[in-house]
Amino acid sequence: MASRTTHPVLDTRSLNRATLARQLLLSRAEMSARAAIEHLLGLQAQNVKPPYFQLYARLAGFRPAELAALMESRQTVRMVTMRSTIHTHTAQDALTLRPLVQSARDREVNYFRKGLVGVDLDRLDTSARAFVEAEPRTMGEIREELLKQWPDADPQSLSVAARCRLPLVQVTPRGVWGRSGQVRLTTVEKWLGPGTDPREGGGHRPPAVDEVVLRYLGAFGPASVKDMQTWAGLTRLREAFERLRPGLAVFQDENGVELFDLPDALRPDADVPAPPRFLPEFDNLLLSHADRTRVLAPELKGRTWRGSQAYCTLLLDGFLAGLWKLEGATLTVELFGTASKARRGEIIAEGESLLAAMTGEGADGSGSGPGSGSGSVRFGPIHG
């Protein structure tokens, strides 16, 4: 929505540097993994490894064992939240952000209503909850259980209804670095234990949307109303922004779109250096704004995907500049354009650091850290 009022203009580079600073990508933060996950409002996690690589790109001294321990101790969980995708959240955010997006999940169920004719959704909730709380189940097992009660229903529609209407978490060992496991599900309340079920007066309630707006701006701002709606997969958030307007800083981009921000948030100079960063597939930096030109040049739109496959991405000078792929201890980098010898040296140094921390002796936290592993960084195509 174009602004009718003239506000200070933030150009693309200024937006880029501000967003990188909030995303902990201008310099690695001296912050715990748990604190970072909370600050970022979760990590996109369709696959198991990306959250680990997201934290490595953002935190000083991060090793996979730190997040693995949070998963195993149930301080963090994997579940469907924003945009109907799997995210890794702190336990507290899992209990509060999931209800915030329930209206969008209800709309998703409604899309499958033709396959749910004759299905009592309240009864489905009760049956599915009892089934997964007895012990964690696969989605196939949940579907088969529900088909016993509604044999004429569409199996996929039953799966969608259970997935969307219940706050299901993926139980460990799924999501634990170095381990594997089939996706098994139970409710977030069952997984986190007594006192977390709001039906029993546990005290956990969805936060006011205003609070989430402020947190979003802290992690992704400056941003428009439409940007946050894209991140959350929700609509009708303008009311919340208008309530908060008196306490917010207001800018506009070069197209006149109104941008909101926290008054005291970091907005570094546009010329602040941005080091190379290797981001995994589905990093929220590339998915959480309606207008992604702050990190993605228009001519590169579509370069991070092929069919249903998403590629890992390389940031250079703060902007998308290439793709990368890790096979064993070899990191292959495909640049979209040219890079100077000095810039290639920076890419190699960052890549070697990643290899040492994520594939070498230091990956489990027991080795000596960067430099202790072995591997190589090469430039070339990552796909045919």
Rank of each mutant, 00 (worst) to 15 (best):
S3R: 04
S3G: 05
T5R: 12
L10F: 08
D11T: 11
S14A: 13
L15Y: 10
L26D: 03
A33K: 02
A45W: 01
Q46G: 05
F53E: 13
Y56H: 10
Y56M: 12
A60R: 10
R63C: 11
P64R: 12
E66I: 12
E72C: 11
T76H: 06
T76I: 05
V77A: 06
I86L: 08
L97A: 06
R98M: 02
A104D: 08
D106H: 12
E108F: 15
V109H: 00
N110K: 14
N110D: 14
L116C: 02
L116V: 05
V117M: 13
V117S: 14
D122N: 08
S127H: 15
A130C: 08
V132I: 01
R137L: 01
E141K: 02
R143Q: 10
E144W: 13
E144H: 13
W150I: 04
L158S: 04
L158M: 04
L158I: 03
R163M: 03
R165P: 00
R174Q: 14
G181R: 02
R184S: 11
L185A: 02
V188K: 00
V188P: 05
E189Y: 12
E189G: 13
G193S: 02
A208K: 11
V212T: 09
W231M: 09
L237S: 12
L237C: 12
E239M: 14
A240C: 07
L244M: 05
D253S: 04
R267H: 11
D269N: 13
R277I: 08
E281P: 14
N284D: 15
L285F: 10
L285R: 01
L286D: 13
A290I: 14
D291F: 04
K301Q: 14
G307Q: 07
Q309R: 14
T313K: 14
L316C: 11
L326F: 07
A329V: 12
T330N: 06
T330C: 07
F336A: 05
T338F: 15
R343T: 11
G345A: 02
I348G: 10
I348A: 12
E350C: 10
E352I: 08
L354N: 09
L354H: 09
T359L: 10
G360T: 01
S368A: 15
G369P: 03
G371S: 06
V377M: 02
V377L: 01
R378I: 13
